[in-house]
Amino acid sequence: MVELRFSKKQINKAGEILRIDGKDFNLDELIWAYDVLNNLREMYVHPLNAFQTTLRRKMKVADTSAIASQRLKRIPSILGKLRRSPGMQLARMQDLGGLRAVVGSIDAVRKLEQSYINNPLNRFKHLLKSQKDYINEPKKSGYRGIHLVYQYQGATNPNHNGLLLEIQIRTKVQHAWATAVETMGTFIGQSIKSSEADEIWNEYFSIVGSAFAYMEGCNPVPDFAHLTREETFKKVSQMTEKLQVIEKLMAFRVVIGDINRNSGSYHLLVLDTATQTVQIKSFGLRRIGEATNEYLDWEKKAENNPYMQVVLVSTESVGNLKAAYPSYFLDAEEFIKLIQHIQAESL
């Protein structure tokens, strides 16, 4: 079993070193900080597995076709969050371990959400710390979904108690939007996800989020709430043509072999956008230590390579990898279909 080798004070010190990218610290201290971070991420493996077992059980009631996945947060994402939020302590970061459920409808989202928070017979012993409804109140970026943050309780390993894990619940439409944001962001080399891209791209995905909300009978994105459904669809069509969105997304697809030849519980995905290929290496449950160490090694290789992205994930079956993480296969097919529907309706 993985043991936490560092104190909360040491973890937060490592966060400060990483926040400023080792400036004012020597190389040994920077290497130490990465070791601390990797050890902290490893602590989330067992709680994530326990949460995913519960999530899959609940999904069978809410939507039998739903897809569950889990992941350890990527180092670039962790560093970005530390740098955007100077007051954030690494030991308190709430989504180092995350789970996601992708379901077929808004009704299924609500059913799954309620199974966590409003069931009087709920035996889920963990403490709900935060509940965000980005469906009723979409983010300015256009992002929509439900986020539940739980504090892990009652573990046999005391170091697991108090860890914060995030559960995201999305519809397939919301997942398609998020996938396209990550895929386009990868290729323009800007963070659309964090609204740090050129304004035209931030605006495009924001109004698309509003259009998708109309398609699902939900509240539009606040900045575009003054537009009717028809006006929103028309603007999306115009911007799609102007930015050549469909042409770009269709050109981004990667070449992959037979995914099903891989077997294991954890999958290391290495995306190379320069060659438009993705490598997949799978690990069994007992090889999680090896998997997290190799994950860190690949992340170090990717640090100065703008064409490489790496993630360590787990899904119920290897065949679900592409459906759960389409952005790592640069697959925006569902998004393109939705945009083409909008274009057809706005003619």
Rank of each mutant, 00 (worst) to 15 (best):
L249V: 11
Q70W: 02
R92F: 10
N12M: 05
H147R: 10
G284T: 13
R5K: 15
P76Y: 06
R253A: 05
L321P: 00
L72E: 03
A91W: 13
G145I: 02
R57S: 14
K281S: 07
N38M: 01
Q309P: 00
E316L: 06
A33F: 09
N119L: 08
A225D: 08
D198W: 04
V2K: 03
Y295V: 01
H46P: 02
A91P: 00
E230I: 09
N159S: 09
I336P: 07
R19S: 03
I67M: 04
D331Y: 03
L18P: 00
G319F: 00
R41F: 01
L243I: 13
S7G: 07
H226A: 12
L82P: 00
Y44H: 15
F205R: 09
S191R: 14
A291R: 08
N26C: 13
Q94N: 13
Y116I: 10
P326I: 07
E316T: 13
Q151A: 15
Q309W: 03
Q52D: 15
K235H: 06
F51D: 04
Q94V: 01
S346F: 02
A225Q: 09
L27W: 07
S105R: 02
A213L: 07
G104E: 08
M43E: 08
N320V: 01
L321A: 04
F283C: 09
E42H: 06
V208I: 10
V45N: 06
Q114M: 10
V109C: 15
D24Y: 13
Y328H: 08
S85N: 15
V221K: 12
D95P: 09
F283S: 10
A213Q: 11
L128F: 05
G289P: 00
F283A: 08
T156A: 09
G284A: 12
G80F: 00
D35I: 03
S265Y: 09
R286H: 14
E247A: 14
I188M: 13
R110A: 05
N12D: 15
A176G: 09
G217Y: 03
S265G: 05
A108Q: 07
R57G: 12
L330M: 15
K193G: 02
H341N: 15
S141R: 04
A324H: 11
N159W: 00
V254F: 04
W298Q: 12
A274V: 05
S141Q: 10
